[in-house]
Simulated scan of single mutants.
Amino acid sequence: MNEDLIRSYMTAAGMLMEDVSAKVLLDPLAPERVGDLRSLINELRAIADVVDAIRRSAG
């Protein structure tokens, strides 16, 4: 159960990174790219916190 939940969060993180990566590659000079990167960082940090919490609760 916990492994499935962690896998789901990690998959979501990968999808978020792919999305921003494609945007950066296609239009790196767009003014909104910095905001995209900042949002990604915040979302990845939140996912990491949740995964850590799941692992701690399973421990």
Rank of each mutant, 00 (worst) to 15 (best):
V24Y: 11
D36A: 01
I6H: 11
A46D: 07
P28S: 07
I6F: 08
L26I: 01
S39K: 08
L29M: 12
P31V: 02
L16P: 02
R45V: 13
V34L: 11
V51E: 05
M10T: 10
L40T: 01
S57P: 00
L26Q: 09
N2Y: 14
E43R: 12
M10L: 15
S21A: 09
I41C: 07
P28N: 11
L25S: 11
A13M: 05
I41A: 07
S21C: 07
P28A: 03
D49T: 13
E43P: 03
D27Q: 12
D52P: 01
A58R: 09
P28G: 06
L40D: 00
A53F: 05
I41D: 06
S57M: 07
V24C: 05
L26N: 08
L26H: 04
D52C: 06
S8I: 06
L44I: 00
R45C: 04
L25W: 06
A46V: 03
P28Q: 14
M15G: 08
G59M: 08
G59S: 13
V20K: 02
A22Q: 15
N2E: 15
N42F: 03
S8L: 06
V34H: 04
A53G: 07
A46C: 05
P31F: 08
I54R: 01
L40S: 02
A12T: 15
D19E: 14
D52N: 14
M17S: 07
R56K: 08
R7M: 02
D49F: 15
P28R: 15
R33M: 15
P28E: 10
L5P: 04
P28W: 13
S21G: 12
R33D: 03
A22D: 10
E43V: 01
I47C: 03
E18N: 13
A12C: 11
I6C: 06
L29F: 14
L25D: 05
